[in-house]
Amino acid sequence: MYLAKIYVTYKPSILDPQGEVIKSALKRLDYAGVAQVSQGKYFEVKLDAKNIDAATAEVESFTDALLINQNTETYHFDLSLVSDEVNA
């Protein structure tokens, strides 16, 4: 079993209004060193796959099909092998 950690953010050319609001609020709270804030989405998905290549292909497929808007968002992900056993 694999665990996919998927990080979705706006493409660099897309304005991130929520990120800008957060940045402005941080500046008002005297966090003057904050230069940029990017807001995004995070998903964790466990999946059964024969190997890392099959898991990678499946994550790319369902992320492109469902989790992102391909016009405005981009993503990256990490895959790790996890045990499917529940430790009590």
Rank of each mutant, 00 (worst) to 15 (best):
E85F: 05
P12G: 05
A25E: 11
P12Y: 04
A54Y: 09
K11E: 10
Y42V: 10
E44T: 13
V21S: 13
Y2G: 02
A25M: 08
G19S: 00
S24H: 14
V34H: 06
D78F: 03
L15P: 00
V59P: 04
E60L: 08
T56V: 08
Y2T: 01
M1W: 01
P12V: 07
A88T: 12
T63D: 04
K41D: 07
I14P: 01
Q70V: 06
E58F: 06
A25R: 04
L67Q: 06
Y31G: 01
Y10Q: 12
I52Y: 07
L79F: 06
G40L: 09
L79N: 01
A54Q: 13
E73K: 02
D30S: 15
K11M: 11
G40H: 07
E58D: 13
I6K: 02
K5W: 03
Q36R: 15
G33R: 10
Y2E: 02
V34M: 08
M1V: 06
E73Y: 03
K50C: 10
I68H: 02
V21C: 12
F62Y: 09
D48A: 14
S61E: 09
D16N: 08
R28D: 09
T56L: 05
N51T: 12
A49D: 09
L79H: 02
M1C: 05
E73T: 00
V34A: 12
